[in-house]
């Protein structure tokens, strides 16, 4: 038996049944060193982009990861994708710890975990036709050796994503933002993934187009039994699309619950402030709403506050919040909060 065969490789068909755990993220940390000096570089500190994040994703569900700029939601996604290797922690996909695999052994897993990026303008190669953009990953991963069949599959994928098959001959600049995002989705689908990370996948689109793409993502989830990690800052979209939601602040998950539960009954002071800051598109609702604006700004992740990272902006903070790092507690079944002051 050679070493290659001993490496865990993904099974052909999705071995995880619907509702079972597909992905486990355990105590994930990603620190980016900050260096000084041009020739003799020394590390003067670490940006703690992700600092001890844990969550599970069950097969078939959509987990929303929300938070403001710099909270670490994108870095978390990049670590799951293995685009950034974590500083520490475990990424367990279908029971296999991806952190223990070499780059080469990861290749078959990369096929199962795909990504849709935010900006459909910069995430497609402007010099490649749509057909080649979809063809290349299939060729590299050996999905379909026959070029004729690959072309048929490209036409199928475009149709599934709501584009005419003849778009295979177009360049990205010949398409609108919404159409490009559909190409981005087709590219994510072309390797038959189980799991797709949508990193602000609909944020750059106009509302009427955004609704089209949201519906497409929902249809594909049904049709191909996909599981999504949906990273976004737009809470209305997250509420619509996700079954569970994790709220991040400064590298940590502060609250995690079923979507309706989180939006009906937010417990963490940060989640409450975040939800009340989102304006509702209805002037009558707005006129009746009591909202508190959150004072101040997010502190630097280079030098995060001690204790609870939210305490400098928190109205409920007590002495203990300055020293004790709060752990996630399960207050109601499935509703986790990292704040000792709420009950």
């Amino acid at each position: 038996m050679n070493a290659q065969a001993a490496m865990p490789a993904p099974s052909a068909a999705g071995s995880v049944a619907k509702g079972e755990t597909l992905l486990e993220v355990r105590n994930l940390k990603k620190y980016f060193p900050v260096t000084e000096g041009l020739v003799f570089q020394k590390t003067v500190g670490n940006v703690k982009a992700v600092d001890g994040v844990s969550f599970d994703i069950r097969k078939g569900e959509t987990l929303g990861l929300v938070g403001e700029s710099g909270c670490g939601k994108t870095t978390t996604g990049r670590c799951v994708l293995q685009l950034d290797r974590p500083t520490s922690g475990e990424i367990v996909f279908e029971g296999v710890n991806l952190e223990r695999l070499s780059n080469k052994a990861l290749t078959p897993w990369r096929q199962k975990i795909q990504v849709i990026f935010q900006d459909p303008y910069s995430s497609l190669n402007p010099r490649m036709k749509v057909g080649s953009i979809l063809d290349e990953p299939m060729r590299i991963h050996g999905i379909e050796p026959d070029p004729g069949r690959r072309n048929r599959r490209i036409a199928e994928l475009l149709t599934v994503c709501g584009l005419p098959a003849k778009f295979a001959d177009r360049y990205p600049h010949e398409m609108s933002g919404g159409q490009r995002q559909r190409v981005g989705i087709a590219r994510a689908l072309c390797l038959n993934p189980d799991f797709i990370i949508c990193d602000e996948a609909v944020s750059a689109l106009d509302v009427s187009i955004q609704a089209q793409v949201i519906n497409l993502l929902e249809d594909l989830r049904e049709e191909f039994e996909l599981t999504y990690l949906f990273i976004a800052h737009d809470l209305s979209v997250v509420h619509h699309l996700c079954s569970r939601v994790a709220v991040m602040y400064l590298g940590k998950v502060v609250e995690l619950a079923e979507s309706d539960e989180l939006f009906d009954n937010p417990l963490h002071p940060y989640t409450r402030a975040l939800l009340s800051a989102v304006p509702i598109p209805d002037p009558r609702v707005e006129a009746q709403r009591a909202y508190q604006t959150l004072k101040g700004e997010v502190p630097s992740p280079l030098n995060p506050p001690p204790g609870c990272v939210f305490h400098p902006r928190c109205a409920m903070a007590v002495e203990g919040c300055r020293t004790e790092v709060p752990a996630l507690r399960e207050l109601h079944p499935g509703h986790w909060v990292a704040c000792p002051e709420v009950s």
């Binding site: 009427s208 209305s236 309706d260 939006f263």
Partner: peptide
Amino acid sequence: GLLNSVPRMDLRQ
């Protein structure tokens, strides 16, 4: 159409 396109955070989906 514009109003229909926007998901509402305050309504159960």
